[in-house]
């Protein structure tokens, strides 16, 4: 068992290493040269810059220096905003996004799961149909559509809340909703279908035949089994929230790291792009690792890991 954990962690580190390498070479391939600007830069300054960014060294030296920096969590300075330290910016802007993400996750768990359970228990009634219709719509409408509709309706026409920024607590409603809508809908559909699947299982029949109370049968026997696939979804949900943040932060004018990433991409700020990409990769891989490890604890059948799903 421990073997499995160790293997997974090593595997994660290897993956990060590969991604860092990929990112590095990708950035090196950027056309137009690193400093092709509208205004030509005087040659002396260009030389200085090249020196600073090690652009004169052979590629492997550059690579080595880059990787050395990565390990120490030093991603260098921004390309476009001279003097701005990448790591610093990340640490500055990240907490805002994380808070939003956390709230969105809470929303998903507190509303999505019970909704799915209730729908499954009341299958084919109007409750089920209504809930699933909403969920299906929620899953298909992209986050920025939700954001836009929310703003024009709630902030615009109805004027109940401020549209942009995060000043008052009410400002959180829109972004959290836009971030979480997709995952909430997905989780409720997933919980429902998982629950339905579980309710049909033979062991449910056994439990009832043994005279166990309805409550016990449901909450002990059904729920644990039903939630297994939901836990598996936590990884991808995290990814959805990350990508959602790019758009939601833009639309709601929130100064988080998602928006900053988009700005960096548009500005071709290579070091910043590399740094933030690595950051996202690390967090995501870490999250998936965490879920994987708890997963084998939740479902006793999966004790020794499988490498690549069926």
């Amino acid at each position: 068992m421990k073997n499995y954990y160790v293997r997974r962690i090593l595997s994660a580190i290897l993956t990060l290493f590969i991604i860092a390498t990929m990112t590095f070479f990708m950035m090196k391939l950027m056309p137009g040269g690193p400093f092709a600007r509208e205004r030509p830069i005087p040659p002396e300054i260009l030389a200085l810059i090249e020196e600073k960014y090690n652009l004169n060294d052979p590629i492997f030296v550059q690579y080595y220096k880059y990787m050395a920096g990565v390990v120490q969590l030093d991603f260098g300075n921004s390309y476009t905003d001279v003097g701005v330290d990448v790591t610093e910016q990340i640490l500055l802007k990240f907490p805002i996004s994380m808070r939003l993400g956390l709230y969105a996750t809470i929303l998903v768990v507190i509303i999505g799961i019970p909704l799915g359970i209730v729908s499954a228990l009341k299958q084919s009634t109007w409750v089920d149909h209504a809930a699933m219709l909403v969920a299906t719509i929620g899953v298909t409408i992209p986050s920025f559509v939700v954001a836009v509709v929310y703003i024009s309706l709630v902030a615009g026409t109805l004027g109940w809340v401020d549209a942009f920024g995060l000043d008052k607590w009410t400002s959180y409603i829109g972004p959290v909703l836009a971030l979480g809508a997709y995952s909430l809908s997905f989780v409720s559909r997933l919980t429902r279908s998982s629950m339905l699947e579980v309710l049909r299982q033979d062991y449910m029949r056994t439990a009832r035949a043994n005279g166990l109370s309805k409550f016990k049968v449901l909450y002990k026997h059904a729920l644990k089994n039903a939630l297994i696939p939901v836990v598996t979804y936590l990884g991808p949900m995290f990814a959805a929230i990350i990508t959602g943040s790019f758009v939601v932060e833009q639309v709601f004018a929130i100064g988080g790291i998602g928006r900053y990433y988009v700005i960096s991409v548009a500005a071709r700020d290579y070091t910043m792009i590399m740094g933030i990409t690595m950051f996202y990769a690390a967090i995501y891989i870490g999250m998936v690792l965490l879920v994987d490890m708890t997963y084998s604890w939740i479902d006793p059948r999966i004790r020794l890991g499988k490498s690549s799903g069926e």
Binding site: I19, M26, M30, R268, Y280, Y284, I285
Partner: peptide, 14 residues
Amino acid sequence: SIPLVIYVILLMVL
């Protein structure tokens, strides 16, 4: 192991 959208973004920049 990382969200696919990120690749697409990086590729577009590339």
